[in-house]
Amino acid sequence: SNGLSATQNQVLSLIRSCPDAQGIHIHDLKQKLSGMSIAVIKQAVEFLCNEGHVFSTIDEEHFRSTDN
């Protein structure tokens, strides 16, 4: 266990899998996590930002992982 919830791990793994320099858009996360609400996704992203796992890129809606 890495201390993250199942939801947080799902979101992190999707952010990690995006090869683009500007990262993945929050709406693309929503599309790929079809059962998850945007509020839940945003909450997970915020947590991951606070923990330094991810960061925003060209604006506050695109995210990249620190470990790729």
């Binding site: 330094g52 960061f55 060209i58």
Partner: peptide, 30 residues
């Protein structure tokens, strides 16, 4: 499309800040 120099600068700045935050969190857990 490709990123502007300003966008690249911003991304790198945010990445460094996040890496520092990650290191801080890991240190707190020890």
């Amino acid at each position: 499309g490709s990123l502007t120099a300003e966008q690249q600068r911003r991304i790198e700045e945010n990445r460094q800040r996040a890496l520092a935050r990650r290191a801080e969190r890991l240190a707190q857990q020890e």
